[in-house]
Nucleic acid binder design. Sequence first.
DNA 1: TGTCTATTTGGCTAAATAACCAATTTGTTG
DNA 2: CAACAAATTGGTTATTTAGCCAAATAGACA
Lengths: 103, 103
Amino acid sequence: MPSRQTVSSKRSAVIKALAHPSRLLIAEALMGGEMCVCDLKDLVGADMSTVSKHLSIMRQAGVLVSDKRGLNNYYRLACDCLGDFLRCLDQLAPRNVKTKPCC
Amino acid sequence: MPSRQTVSSKRSAVIKALAHPSRLLIAEALMGGEMCVCDLKDLVGADMSTVSKHLSIMRQAGVLVSDKRGLNNYYRLACDCLGDFLRCLDQLAPRNVKTKPCC
DNA sequence: TGTCTATTTGGCTAAATAACCAATTTGTTG
DNA sequence: CAACAAATTGGTTATTTAGCCAAATAGACA
């Protein structure tokens, strides 16, 4: 069984993979179904190589899976629990005052 | 109402606040109840100033709330949906092979 | 008030991350 | 096989982030 340390760093990698705005945008887009890299490039608006590296990070963390069909590489979410996750996030409003929890 | 852009960057900030191993460790520890900075310093094993900066990031992102009682500053989770969140993460096993979703 | 304790803030350096361009890989199709 | 398309990888530079030390705050209490 995995040690606490292993589990913790695994979790960190997954969160890190979602922490970049472009990567989060990609994850949100993929909630609607799989997309190929060139479509994601248009969505993000960055160089394809940049997008490819983002996708690589997300795939290595286990957030995405991909398969190649024809000329294109299609990516999709590895798990559909992401939706709940994002809804959870939205309950946390950013605040710099002390005290007063959100929920 | 907030724009898509605003919501997206807000989410990013929250995720970023949890993406660092020490900060995730802190969040996990606080699931068991509030703790003061000095206890968290022992937990993380870093300089108190470092821990304080981590806490500041998490508080600004809305993940934590704090209040001072006596000499100590106590921190706790702003929301208890974090538990579900972490359980969700654990479903995502890191893999570098292509295809084969986890769930 | 002066001192002690807990915490935060400022400043600096080292390390990690992101972005682009160029070059390479992999598979397609004429 | 040659030319092409989609995507990845390598290399470089700029930006961001993390960590420590030292200094500053804020409150408790003798």
